[in-house]
Amino acid sequence: MSRATTIVQIVRDAYRAEGFLPLHAPVFQGNESAYVQATIESTFVSSVGAYVDQFEAMLREITGASHVIATTNGTTALHMSLLLAGVGRDDLVITQSLSFVATANSIAHAGATPAFVDVDADSYGLSHTALKAFLESECVLTNAGCIHRATGRRVAACVPMHSFGLPARIEEIVEIATAWRISVIEDAAEALGSKIGSRHCGTFGKLGTLSFNGNKIVTTGGGGAIMTNDPELGKRAKHLTTTAKVPHRWRFEHDAIGFNFRLPNLNAALGCAQLEQLDAFIAYKRDLAQRYSEAFAKADIPFVTERPGTTSNYWLCAILLKDLAERDECLEITNEAGVMTRPIWEPLHTLPMFSSAPRGPLEVTQEIASRLINIPSGVLRQPA
């Protein structure tokens, strides 16, 4: 039996299902229809409504963040977080090349340029050792902040990502960045429910962000959120994402250039129903990951697991193949067999718009990109 055929069989056995198996699809089995219908009947379907407030309150309870501001999507959440952290035009923002393009796009939207460093081989999150090496070899700390020697640009922020819901070494990253006077903004788009110890991903840095796209563990259709424990930043985030409108019953007063980034009530209604099922979703996915781990171990195919001391939501499960040729062969055969698999994202430094961005060595990034595939990881809809 070929490795690709083995993968197909393991996935089908883990799900105990035939037919097409998607990579990750939303499941609506709770109060989604009732809450959305209630929103329609209320006529409050845009960015003001009770479900927006409820959605943010539920996220505060789940994540432990003092302030949560719901946004239109994860990209706008990250864009706004960068602005709130003081990132400006021509600044540099350190991030990882092994990430979805929205991470780097958000940096560009803020007028800055990404600077890429490598990831850890066991978490696929930004490597604190690579970060330290980049700062010591490429930057200097001055009265004006951290300056990149080759370009003279200020390094204003660092954006590590918790890839696939696997917690990165964020505590070490924050410690290093703080010493270099660099703000940390966590891209926790994929990490709702993931923790380091008892602390939720996205709550270690100055700000953190979540995504509720249709393929995430919880979806609002689109949607994102900003998290922070800083009351002033929380207040400012809500103000700027709501067109910077000064509260008044009828006047249209705006005191800054604002953004129309607030999540609509209609989407928030869907999100509230989804959050009610979050614990069950995570339990299902962690059980699925355990079945995968045991089966792939027997087949001598490395399955990607959480680091000790961390809890992953296993948003997307992943395996590592021998090399690029085997990866591409398995992608072809598994998808042809009705088991949806995908490679990891193209490393961002290889994309034309970011090809000239500053970077450190990216050996681990290149190695993972040539071998990793994601396998079906969603919650199967249960029979009625």
Rank of each mutant, 00 (worst) to 15 (best):
Trp315Phe: 11
Val11Arg: 01
Glu336Tyr: 08
Asp187Asn: 15
Ala273Pro: 04
Thr142Asp: 07
Val52Ile: 15
Leu263Gly: 01
Ile182Phe: 08
Ser356Ala: 15
Pro343Leu: 12
Ala337Ile: 07
Asp230Pro: 08
Gly214Pro: 00
Ala295Asp: 10
Ile196Pro: 01
Val48Gly: 00
Thr228Ile: 09
Val339Asn: 03
Gln9Lys: 15
Ile182Ser: 04
Arg181Val: 05
Thr203Asn: 07
Ala357Lys: 03
Val45Ser: 09
Val304Glu: 02
Arg199Glu: 09
Glu367Ser: 14
Ala191Lys: 01
Cys317Leu: 08
Ala269Met: 09
Thr219Asn: 11
Arg249Val: 11
Ile182Leu: 10
Ala25Met: 11
Gln96Ala: 14
Ile344Ala: 06
Asp287Val: 00
Asp300Thr: 13
Asp90Ser: 14
Ala102Thr: 12
Pro160Ala: 12
Gly205Glu: 03
His79Pro: 02
Trp180Glu: 07
Ala112His: 06
Thr209Val: 15
Arg3Trp: 06
Glu190Asp: 15
Ala112Pro: 03
Val119Thr: 09
His24Met: 14
Ala299His: 08
Ala65Gln: 04
Arg327Lys: 15
Ala337Thr: 08
Leu351Thr: 11
Ala188Lys: 00
Lys206Met: 14
Pro361Val: 13
Leu82Gly: 05
Cys146Asp: 04
Leu126Asn: 03
Gly64Val: 10
Val364Ser: 07
Val8Ser: 01
Ile185Glu: 01
Phe20Glu: 13
Arg307Ala: 12
Thr310Ser: 05
Ala225Thr: 09
Ser106Pro: 06
Gln274Thr: 10
Met340Lys: 11
Leu270Thr: 06
Phe261Thr: 02
Leu59Gln: 05
Gln9Asp: 15
Leu278Arg: 08
Gly258Ala: 11
Leu240Phe: 14
Phe261Val: 02
Thr129Met: 13
Cys330Thr: 07
Ala85Gln: 06
Thr5Gly: 02
Ile373Gly: 03
Gln9Gly: 05
Leu270Phe: 08
Thr228Ser: 12
Pro231Phe: 11
Lys298Val: 13
Asn313Leu: 06
Ala85Leu: 06
Arg181Pro: 00
Lys132Leu: 14
Ser127Asp: 06
Ala256Asn: 13
Ala112Glu: 04
Ala289His: 05
Gly19Gln: 12
Ile94Ser: 02
Trp180Ile: 09
Ser377Asp: 09
Ala65Glu: 03
Leu83Phe: 03
Asp122Gly: 04
Lys285Leu: 05
Leu78Thr: 06
Trp315Lys: 01
Arg307Gly: 00
Asp118Leu: 08
Ala325Arg: 12
Val184Tyr: 01
Leu362Lys: 02
Phe296Thr: 01
Trp250Ser: 14
Tyr292Thr: 07
Ile282Ser: 02
Glu56Leu: 06
Ala150Glu: 15
Gly224Cys: 12
Ile107Arg: 03
Pro114Lys: 08
Ile147His: 06
Gln290Met: 11
Met80Lys: 03
Gln37Trp: 11
Val117Asn: 02
Val87His: 02
Leu126Ala: 07
His128Arg: 11
Pro264Val: 10
His239Asn: 11
Val184Phe: 06
Asp120Ala: 14
His79Ser: 07
Arg307Tyr: 02
Ser370Lys: 15
Arg286Glu: 09
Ala104Tyr: 03
Thr228Gln: 09
Leu348Met: 13
Thr71Lys: 07
Thr334Leu: 14
Asn143Ile: 05
Ser99Pro: 02
Gly202Asp: 01
Cys272Lys: 03
